[in-house]
C-alpha cells in the first residue's frame, strides 16, 4: 500500500466516521447542533476529496471548539483517536516533502500499535486483570454493559478469566503482527472483531469506526518497513 493511497483511504474512512458521529448529535440540544452541522458538511467534503488540506484544517479548528464546548473529549478515547488521525492528515497535507509526510503517517501508525500494546501492558501488570476480577467488575457494576442481561456474564469467572487473558495476550502481541502482511491482516481482523465486541456489549460504536479508519496507516507502515 503506497502512501498516497493509504492517506486517501484514511481520509475517506475518517470522513465516514466523523459523519456518523456528527449525525448522532443532530437530535441534541441546539447549542451542540451549531457545532455539528458544519462538521457534517466538512466530513462530506473530506470523503469526496474537495480541498482536503483546508477541510482538514477547518475540522481541526472545529475540533478545538468541540473540545472547549464539552471541556474535553465527548467520548473519551474514540474522540482522541479521531483528533489524532485528523491532525496527522492535516499536517501531511501541508508538509513540503514526502519524507515529512512519511514521518507523520508513521507516527500515526506507531500510535495505533501503541494503543493496543500499552492497553495490554497496563492490564498485565494489574493482578485484578490477571485473575479476571477486573473484567468481572466491568460486567458487575460499571456503566458500560448496554443491557442488564449482560451483567449475568459476571457469574462466569472462568469465562471472564479466559477472555481477560485473551485480550491481554492479543494486545501485547499486536506489534509482532507487523512482521508480515499476512500476520498483520490477521491481527487487524482480530482487533476489528475485538472493537466490534466492545461496540456490541458496551455500546462503544464510535471506537469501532474510528479505529478502522486508523488501519491504513499501519498497513502502509508494514509495507514501508518490510516491503511485503
Amino acid at each position: 500500500m503506497n502512501l498516497e493511497f493509504a492517506v486517501r483511504l484514511t481520509e475517506i474512512m475518517l470522513g465516514f466516521a466523523f459523519l456518523q458521529q456528527s449525525l448522532e448529535h443532530i437530535a441534541s440540544p441546539r447549542k451542540e447542533q451549531i457545532l455539528f452541522f458544519p462538521r457534517v458538511v466538512l466530513s462530506f467534503l473530506l470523503i469526496i476529496g474537495f480541498q482536503t488540506p483546508w477541510v482538514c484544517l477547518a475540522l481541526v479548528i472545529l475540533g478545538l471548539f468541540i473540545l472547549h464546548r464539552f471541556q474535553g473529549p465527548y467520548n473519551g478515547g474514540s474522540d482522541r483517536m479521531g483528533l489524532l488521525i485528523l491532525c496527522c492528515l492535516c499536517l501531511i497535507s501541508f508538509m513540503p516533502n514526502l519524507q515529512w509526510q512519511e514521518y507523520i503517517f508513521g507516527y500515526l501508525a506507531l500510535q495505533v500499535m501503541l494503543s493496543y500494546f500499552i492497553s495490554g501492558w497496563v492490564k498485565i501488570v494489574n493482578p485484578e486483570w490477571r485473575n479476571g476480577r477486573a473484567l468481572k467488575d466491568v460486567f458487575l457494576f460499571s456503566a458500560y454493559p448496554v443491557a442488564e442481561s449482560f451483567r449475568k456474564f459476571a457469574d462466569y469467572p472462568r469465562l471472564l478469566g479466559l477472555a481477560s487473558w485473551g485480550v491481554i495476550l492479543f494486545e501485547l502481541a499486536f506489534p509482532l503482527t507487523l512482521l508480515t502482511q499476512q500476520t498483520l491482516m490477521v491481527g487487524l481482523g482480530i482487533a476489528a472483531a475485538f472493537h466490534l465486541a466492545n461496540a456490541w456489549l458496551f455500546g462503544l460504536n464510535r471506537f469501532f469506526w474510528i479505529w478502522l479508519a486508523s488501519y491504513p496507516s499501519i498497513l502502509w507502515l508494514q509495507t514501508r518497513i518490510f516491503g511485503q
Binding site: 475540533g63 478545538l64 471548539f65 473540545l67 472547549h68 471541556q71 474535553g72 473529549p73 478515547g77 474522540d79 482522541r80 483517536m81 483528533l83 489524532l84 491532525c87 500510535q111 501503541l114 494503543s115 500499552i118 492497553s119 497496563v122 492490564k123 494489574n126 485484578e128 477486573a134 467488575d137 466491568v138 457494576f141 460499571s142 456503566a143
Partner: peptide, 23 residues
C-alpha cells in the same frame, strides 16, 4: 485551554480500563 485539551489526543496515554474505578 482548547489546545491543552488537544494535547492528550496528540500524545495519547492509551491506558484503557487499567483499573475499574467506582462507577
Amino acid at each position: 485551554h482548547s489546545l491543552q485539551l488537544l494535547l492528550p489526543a496528540l500524545i495519547p496515554s492509551w491506558r484503557f480500563f487499567d483499573v475499574i474505578s467506582p462507577s
